[in-house]
Design a protein around this nucleic acid. Structure first.
Lengths: 314, 314
DNA sequence: AAAAATCCTGTAATTAAATTTCAGTCGTCT
DNA sequence: AGACGACTGAAATTTAATTACAGGATTTTT
């Protein structure tokens, strides 16, 4: 019961976070493999103790299908799958192991929301294309000017945050969350400039257009978005990131955490790439902030002491 | 080469921490088993990937001796041993917090950054004052108008994000990241209005002043900050949150993740409190966003279908 | 001091488990 | 309509792990 139209999935690299990996590739799995995924998801803990025959029976498929499933999620063998799953579960448990047991509704709510957030971060780490991120770091570190585009509920604030992160490194950076401004700014870019576009859906029309304009003027477009989307197609350097959204419209999207984590990594990478220059710029920013009246823990005439201050970041 | 005088070890209960268990029973092991223990201890990580034959060869003993070793340390089988060892190692790794930033490898860098992010979220959950958050939810849900204040690197973008979260629920909300605007807006507040102030340091002078102005006009001030700070003292409802900052100035502060998680919880709580009203407002926002041209998965004249769309959030 | 007892250890056999091979089937494209 | 391509499970094969068993060593007992 299948056809040849599906392009057949490629071999994935070993997963860091098996749980999020399973969720992410689920759509690409064959029917039998999806049954295995469902059986595993029903009780992850149990899956680490089952044999291949038991899991096959539970899923209602043949044993080879289980092996094939393991390969599809990036594991070398069934045994490898079990080890990785056990590791993932332990990590998840360690991160969200709160000693507290929440009796009240608020606590339950918080646990649910924050678990989603932590999962998004783990998912980001699992699927991070480090090669692409490396290129992005190089591009930003070597650019004359950086424009950041983001739009809508999920990405506008992340674009602003990204701006601040790079601004602190002394880079000439601007963030645009408005379509017109994005396009106008994009038209002024040149080769040697960089664009950072953030969008979970990858289908924000204005952002896609602005990116296309930017690349047409020779700028390097770094896009952080879902692969296979218009935005991903338009970018020069694509950092693919697939974060599942919740059907419940009342729940804030967890993709923001993933995007922020990637941007933080990018910013840290750029900071190290810039080396002394970035360090000096950051020192100056902190020193200036301190001098205009934000309280700092240890007022001092020695700028390096200001730099050491823990709370000067806001 | 053995004698009958050893009292013979009893069956141990399943170990929680295999590494310490091995050390503890080592003295009671037989010579061949001790060789296995040494081989395992030489590289725990590798032991989780080795087969019984490989481990036997590495230890210089027979395969049954490996099985016997596993039983001696409290595991049911070699497979059980491997799973437990992997689990133990992961727990150990999770508690070994990487303060060091690895410059050489992008993956290491990402892992470091994202671990910090996940830890911040966990820390937020650990110390969350659910009673205070509950009061904050009530205050926001019952307020006529909400002002959000945040300033500087850490909190400005979070304030913007918080604005979007509440805006989607149909609340009249505004965010101010500038000191003058904060004070000006605060002076127009009345009883029945609410303020949400976000600051990790709790010492941003303009935010503290604006909060004081707001409360003097009768508004309810919700502050998300470190306890014992000027801002915490100025607030009506204090949600205490202490997130340690990194000494390394090049690393973005993880407190943003914690604040965003708390705000998400707050927004979700408000959404539930508002019930149908919030739902309807959110539906309208989404519908409007869709109708002005953002691509949506399933274009439809039925508003509820739009609401179901997964990617309309940006 | 010699014999018995006990237990440790490895070889070999057995059993269990996982993977590969292969053929059938179904859907899609030409 | 025919052919190709992919998915699936049955069966075979290979690999891995456990059990059974016997040799050998050391200490205790006689």
């Amino acid at each position: 019961m299948a056809g040849p139209r599906s392009p057949r999935r490629e071999i994935d690299e070993p997963p860091i976070d098996l749980v999020s990996r399973i969720e992410r590739v689920e759509a690409r799995l064959s029917p039998a493999e999806r049954l295995v995924a469902a059986a595993v998801q029903q009780d992850y803990e149990a899956a680490t103790r089952l044999t291949i025959a038991e899991l096959a029976e539970k899923a209602g498929v043949s044993q080879p299908s289980v092996t094939r499933f393991c390969r599809s999620v990036g594991c070398a063998s069934f045994g490898d799958f079990k080890i990785r799953l056990a590791t993932t579960l332990t990590v998840a448990a360690a991160y969200l192991k709160t000693d507290r047991v929440f009796a009240d509704d608020i606590g339950q709510l918080a646990q649910s929301v924050m678990m989603r957030a932590a999962n998004a971060v783990r998912a980001a780490l699992d699927q991070l294309d480090t090669a692409a991120l490396g290129k992005a770091i190089d591009a930003v570190a070597g650019s004359r000017r950086v424009d950041i585009y983001g739009q809508g509920g999920g990405s506008a604030a992340m674009a602003e945050d990204a701006k601040l992160r790079l601004f602190r490194l002394g880079l000439p950076v601007a963030a645009y969350v408005d379509g017109h401004q994005q396009r106008m700014s994009a038209a002024t870019l040149q080769p040697g400039d960089a664009v950072l576009a953030i969008s979970n859906s990858g289908s924000s029309r204005t952002v896609v257009e602005a990116v296309k304009i930017a690349t047409s003027f020779g700028a390097t477009a770094i896009v952080l978005t879902r692969p296979g989307t218009p935005l991903a197609d338009a970018g020069t350097i694509v950092i693919p990131m697939t974060i599942a959204e919740d059907d419940n419209v009342l729940v804030p999207t967890p993709s923001r955490y993933a995007h922020m984590a990637v941007v933080d990594t990018l910013a840290t990478g750029v900071a190290e790439r810039l080396g002394a220059r970035g360090r000096e710029a950051l020192r100056r920013v902190r020193y200036t902030v301190a001098s205009i009246g934000i309280a700092i823990p240890t007022p001092s005439t020695d700028p390096s002491a200001v730099m050491q201050g823990r709370d000067t970041h806001e």
